[in-house]
Structures are given as structure tokens and as C-alpha cells.
Design a protein around this nucleic acid. Structure first.
Lengths: 229, 229
DNA sequence: ATACTTCGTGTAAGAGTGACACGAACAAAT
DNA sequence: ATTTGTTCGTGTCACTCTTACACGAAGTAT
């Protein structure tokens, strides 16, 4: 047996890059670390995996503990396994990325986080550990994902206008999109249900509200439908 | 500190789904386990991660030890972190998939493998642990990857004909492709260099040999070129 | 020579993409 | 009530890309 309980073994953590959208810019949720190493530094939320929980469950638990977020879209990103990535010793990190709706914004910061705050991805502070690398990978993944799967809805409230949706896509992709073509393509997918309401309180002409059609999505996905941009 | 060396911690293994191509069918390399648990069962190669090696290095080392394979395309796939996936205890597995050229076929089986053998993906034996799930994820990933990045060349010898390349794509995707359209698209990418040789030894008209243009690939990839199917 | 098999090639119809501008609806101010 | 300012919502056309489709040429084996 080449490997037994006597030998020192790598520890396993989870870390999550949490994305949000404020209507104009793509944001990432950071915590200010309360403990060493990197106490006082900003970092993405995360922590050690317990023995009796799956890795994904650990990611959800840490999110809850450190930021108060509970219901999110969460997907595994990549596992960072370099030997020297953590000064505490040999720590392998399974990274996730999460998309949260505005209504699920963090309400509390606790556990080993002093505070939790949103930062626009275009203006992040220096990050602890190799979290800058993790964030870069997460951003690349989100950009790739959004162009062939309708994940954007996870970042919007349940009811939204097409202009809001387009602004989100533009924020993620970093490019301007043509309004008419965008509407044509998105509506053509059959994933949106027009509500009988309009956006209230704007200074100008109110826009039609839509909601995402979860059922149609599952149906179409089963049939191998192509959701490309 | 919520987590210290006193506490029991999950162990970390690597596992690799190794793909090959015999000219007709997509294959996967399996080993027959010599040790418990699952002694005598077929499994994908893998083993524990040592303290002083990165996770990717561990995957390469285990491949070398158990199958003799040394130079491969290797990419991280997914990390399997369910609590009960291994009867030895809490073991988290970072799974990789690898593509090997026919010239790099395994020459030896050693370490804790009795033997290593290729199986067509359409006729796999029952596998140890949750390796059937890992293989399924790897297959899905390979199918997805092959349609927007030219990874197929990693499964062919350095010199190959367009018919061989097409046969490979058909084997991976499980669908028939139109010969003329396939050639048009592949040649149009500018990734192939026509050699001045032809395939020898066939029973019929010899075909033009090509090789993959690594340099052009890197150049085009830098410019965001689209390698779709 | 003949039979057999693989190699290598072009075109045309249809679908999809991308560029582009303006009248309508509503709020606020006068 | 009218005017001003801003967002909403819509169609067409050119072009590119995709897809379907067949046959003569080049070899090998007998």
C-alpha cells in the first residue's frame, strides 16, 4: 500500500467566485479575511472541506457562512493543485463559480470573514492566495458559457426587460450587441414568456417584462437544442 | 482555526480516462486492479496524490506507472467529491482525460495494475468505484471539445490521411459526416500541411498524407479563430 | 484487360448572420 | 396642452455559411 493514514496528505478547500450584476457592471463578491494567512486581504469565499460533506456541499456551506448567500447557481470550475499555492502547507482547492440574483444579495458576513462586498470585475483589489488566477479562470468560463447556454438569467431578477438582459450580456461579454438582432435571437429561442406587466417607475417609455421559461428550457435542452448566443 | 492537522481530512486521488483510436473505434485504456478494493476489477488508471507533486504531475506519474504512457495530451476534467464514492474512506478524485497517439500505446503495466488493455467505448466492462460516471463525463467532454477545438490530432499518428481524420471524428461524434464538406471545412482552417507522400500499403488508391500544423494552430488560436467542427 | 475500391473534387439551394433607422410610447417640464 | 427628451419596439436586405448531392480518376488484385 503506497499510501496510508500515517503519511501526510494534502488538505482540500473549496473556493467560489460569485458573480452578480448591478444593472451596469458585472460584479464579484469578495470577503475581507479575518484570519491569517492574508488577514485583512480580500479573497473569494471558501474554506476547508469537512469529512462528511461532499465538495459541492462544502462550497454551499462556505458561501452561506461567509456571505449569507443560500440559493445560487453553482458549478464546478477547476481544481487548483499546485504544491505551493497556500502558505499553510499543501492545500488543493476545488474552485466553483456561482451566479446570484439581485434578490439574493448577501445580507451578512460572518465566520472568518470581516465583511463581504461586491466589486466590479474591472476594478478588483489585490487578492489573497492564487485567487486572482481563479477569478480569471472563472471569468473566462462565464464568458464562454454565456454564449452557448442561457445562464444569464441566474443574474437577473425573476422579471426583467429585454434591455436589461441585453445590458447583462454586454457586461459579461464586454462587447456591444445590436438591439434588433439580440431580440430576434433571444425571442427566437422560445425561452422567454412575455408577462402582461411593464416595468414601472422608469423615467420613460415602460418596457415589456419577461420571465425565463424554465420548463421550455429543460425540454429544449433535452432535445439538444442549440442556445448559441 | 476550524481545521487543523488533528482532524481527519479527505484524501485526494487522480484518475485519468485515456482515449485512443484504432482506426475504426474510439477506445479507452483500462487497468485490471491488483489491490483491494476492487481487486480484479477494471478501472481507469489513477492513484493518490503525493505531498510534493502537483495534482497534474500526479496524474502523469500514475499514467506512467500503471500503463507506461509518458507523452500525452492531458486536461483536467472534473473533481468528484461525493462522500461515499470510495469504500476506503473519504477520497476526493480529481479526474483527467488524456488523448494518446497510436505510437504511444502502452507498453507495460506495473505498479498496482495487473494489466492494461484497450476497450472500445461501446463495449466497456463494469468498472470499479464511480469510474463509469467519470468515463461518461470524459466522453461527453471529448465530444463537446472536438467540435470546437482541433484536439483530434492528438489521437492520430503524426502523418495521416483526411479519410483517417474523418473516421476519427465520426467515431468520436457517433455520426456520419459528409466527405466533401468535411474536407472543405478542415482544409479551410489552414491547420493541415499536405506532405509530398502518400499512404503506402493500402489495397487501393493511395491517399495524400497530411500533418497537423502546430505553429499555425497557436497563431490562429491567439487571434481568437473559431475552430468549430 | 477487367473488376473493385478508395481518392478527390464543385455547385446550387436554403438558412442564418449581421448591418442598419425611425416612429411610438411615456414622463417631465413649461 | 404642447414640447422635449429618452427608451421601446420593430423589418429588410446583402452576404456568408451550411448542407445536400455524384462521378471520374487513381490505384490494387486477379
Amino acid at each position: 500500500m503506497p499510501y496510508t493514514y500515517e503519511y501526510p496528505r494534502p488538505s482540500v478547500t473549496v473556493d467560489a467566485a460569485v458573480f452578480g450584476f448591478d444593472g451596469a457592471e458585472l460584479q464579484i463578491l469578495l470577503i475581507e479575511r479575518a484570519l491569517e494567512p492574508f488577514a485583512g486581504s480580500w479573497a473569494i469565499p471558501g474554506g476547508f472541506v469537512d469529512m462528511n460533506e461532499s465538495v459541492e456541499a462544502a462550497a454551499l456551506r462556505e458561501l452561506q457562512e461567509e456571505t449569507g448567500i443560500s440559493r445560487v447557481f453553482l458549478e464546478q470550475l477547476y481544481t487548483f493543485g499546485e504544491v505551493l499555492r497556500d502558505p499553510r502547507g499543501r492545500v488543493i482547492s476545488v474552485a466553483y463559480y456561482a451566479l446570484v440574483k439581485p434578490s439574493e444579495h448577501p445580507t451578512s458576513a460572518a465566520s472568518d470573514a470581516r465583511q463581504a462586498r461586491w466589486f466590479p470585475v474591472s476594478a478588483l483589489p489585490p487578492l489573497a492566495f492564487d485567487h486572482e488566477k481563479i477569478v480569471a479562470v472563472a471569468l473566462a468560463r462565464l464568458r464562454g458559457k454565456v454564449r452557448y447556454e442561457p445562464v444569464g438569467f441566474e443574474l437577473l431578477p425573476p422579471k426583467f426587460t429585454l434591455s436589461e438582459l441585453q445590458a447583462l450580456y454586454e457586461a459579461i461579454l464586454g462587447t456591444a450587441l445590436d438591439k434588433r438582432n439580440f431580440r430576434k435571437k433571444i425571442l427566437g429561442m422560445g425561452l422567454l414568456i412575455a408577462l402582461s406587466e411593464r416595468r414601472q417607475g422608469g423615467q420613460h417609455r415602460p418596457a415589456q417584462l419577461f420571465r425565463f421559461d424554465q420548463k421550455a428550457y429543460k425540454q429544449l435542452r433535452k432535445n439538444g437544442f442549440n442556445f448559441e448566443l
